[in-house]
Amino acid sequence: MVEKKSGTYTGYTEARKAANAKYEAETVERISLVLPKGKKAIIKAHTEHTGQSINGFINEAIDEKMEREGGVDHE
């Protein structure tokens, strides 16, 4: 039997899953995005090349467009 050291990662527990779900419910909103076939792969390739997440890229694009158009404060 292998002994685990104190503080060793034990995996994604049910308690961690519940904590993550509670955090997300309190702090984020989700939106569904529909794209033409193949566009997701193009966006993914671009974000991998720039070292950015797809989510970060989309949020940045939305913020930049709203700022250019004088939209409401997004912070």
Rank of each mutant, 00 (worst) to 15 (best):
M1N: 06
M1D: 06
E3N: 15
K4E: 12
K4D: 09
K5P: 05
K5N: 04
S6A: 08
G7C: 10
G11E: 01
G11T: 03
G11P: 05
Y12L: 01
Y12G: 01
Y12C: 00
Y12W: 06
Y12S: 01
Y12P: 03
T13G: 03
T13R: 08
T13Y: 09
A15Q: 09
A15R: 13
A15D: 13
R16I: 04
R16C: 01
A18S: 09
A18N: 07
A19N: 06
A19T: 06
N20D: 15
N20G: 03
A21G: 02
A21P: 11
A21L: 13
Y23S: 05
Y23E: 03
E24V: 04
E24C: 07
A25S: 10
A25P: 05
E26F: 02
T27F: 00
T27L: 00
T27W: 01
E29C: 04
E29H: 08
R30Q: 10
I31Y: 15
I31A: 13
S32Q: 06
S32I: 07
L33R: 13
L33W: 13
V34P: 08
V34H: 13
L35P: 15
L35C: 04
L35Q: 06
P36F: 02
P36V: 03
K37H: 03
G38H: 12
G38P: 15
K39L: 12
K39A: 01
K40T: 05
K40M: 09
K40H: 14
K40R: 12
A41L: 08
A41N: 06
I43Y: 07
I43E: 00
I43H: 02
I43M: 05
K44W: 08
H46K: 15
H46T: 08
T47W: 04
T47I: 06
E48A: 11
E48L: 15
H49G: 09
H49D: 14
H49L: 11
H49A: 15
H49K: 14
Q52S: 12
S53F: 07
S53Q: 02
S53D: 01
N55H: 02
G56L: 00
G56D: 01
F57W: 14
I58D: 00
I58S: 01
N59W: 07
E60Q: 14
E60S: 12
E60C: 10
E60K: 14
E60M: 12
A61I: 04
A61K: 14
D63H: 10
K65M: 08
K65I: 04
M66A: 05
E67K: 14
E67Q: 12
E67P: 09
E67F: 12
R68Q: 11
R68L: 09
G71R: 00
V72P: 15
V72F: 11
D73E: 14
H74Y: 11
H74F: 12
E75G: 03
